[in-house]
Computed example of a mutant assay.
Amino acid sequence: MDFQTAVRTCFQKYATIAGRARRSEYWWFVLFIFAGNVVLGLVDQIVFGSAQVLSGIFGLATLVPSVCVAGRRLHDTGRSAWWLLLIVIPLIGFLVLLWWFVQKGTDGSNEFGPDPLAGEPAPVPR
């Protein structure tokens, strides 16, 4: 999955935690958010001084898709999205989540859906 496809997919699934996200989808979206914050932070610094107007709006606009793609990434590794709550544990929670985010997803279908790399058809919702 390339950069543009990953960003488009994350915004199309704006508030969807169901399903699975490949590593490339997650990490391209993380790069998009990082780059957006850097660029808008510089623009804020030039235009508004110390006020973070544009980067604040960008952060709010990307908060929900960021949480959702992280949940789908955990689903790909066979874990529930509730594990995202580990982030409230300083440093340890971040490191554990980072380790899970870089791991390869489970091969084949798991309880969260078909393998996104295998190209399996998505199950029909009931």
Rank of each mutant, 00 (worst) to 15 (best):
89 I>G: 05
51 A>L: 13
76 D>F: 08
66 S>V: 08
111 E>A: 14
61 A>R: 10
98 L>D: 00
24 S>A: 14
123 P>Y: 04
106 T>F: 00
11 F>D: 07
4 Q>Y: 00
53 V>S: 05
118 A>K: 13
77 T>K: 00
65 P>I: 11
70 A>N: 05
24 S>M: 08
80 S>P: 11
51 A>H: 06
70 A>C: 04
35 A>N: 02
110 N>G: 09
82 W>Q: 11
8 R>P: 06
37 N>G: 15
44 D>S: 05
33 I>V: 14
26 Y>A: 06
28 W>S: 04
34 F>L: 12
111 E>F: 05
57 I>D: 10
71 G>Y: 12
125 P>V: 00
56 G>H: 09
33 I>M: 08
84 L>I: 02
6 A>R: 00
50 S>W: 09
11 F>Y: 15
12 Q>R: 14
112 F>Q: 00
21 A>F: 12
39 V>Q: 01
108 G>W: 06
72 R>T: 02
75 H>Q: 11
14 Y>C: 13
108 G>T: 03
113 G>Q: 00
95 L>K: 02
56 G>I: 09
17 I>D: 02
2 D>H: 14
1 M>K: 10
60 L>V: 14
89 I>F: 09
25 E>T: 04
64 V>D: 14
68 C>T: 14
85 L>A: 14
15 A>G: 05
33 I>H: 06
6 A>V: 00
91 L>W: 07
112 F>T: 00
56 G>M: 09
4 Q>N: 00
52 Q>V: 03
13 K>F: 07
83 W>R: 11
38 V>Q: 01
107 D>K: 12
3 F>G: 09
93 G>A: 08
72 R>A: 05
8 R>A: 15
48 F>M: 04
125 P>N: 02
121 P>K: 02
50 S>Y: 09
5 T>C: 01
66 S>N: 13
22 R>V: 03
56 G>K: 10
43 V>W: 09
86 L>K: 00
108 G>L: 04
70 A>W: 04
111 E>C: 02
88 V>N: 02
57 I>E: 10
62 T>A: 13
116 P>N: 09
92 I>N: 02
113 G>T: 00
104 K>E: 15
78 G>F: 08
44 D>C: 05
115 D>T: 00
109 S>T: 11
116 P>A: 11
93 G>L: 09
88 V>D: 04
10 C>M: 10
27 W>Y: 15
110 N>L: 08
54 L>M: 08
13 K>N: 15
36 G>P: 10
3 F>A: 11
12 Q>F: 10
33 I>Y: 10
78 G>Q: 07
81 A>R: 07
15 A>M: 07
85 L>P: 03
114 P>C: 12
109 S>W: 11
97 L>C: 05
115 D>E: 03
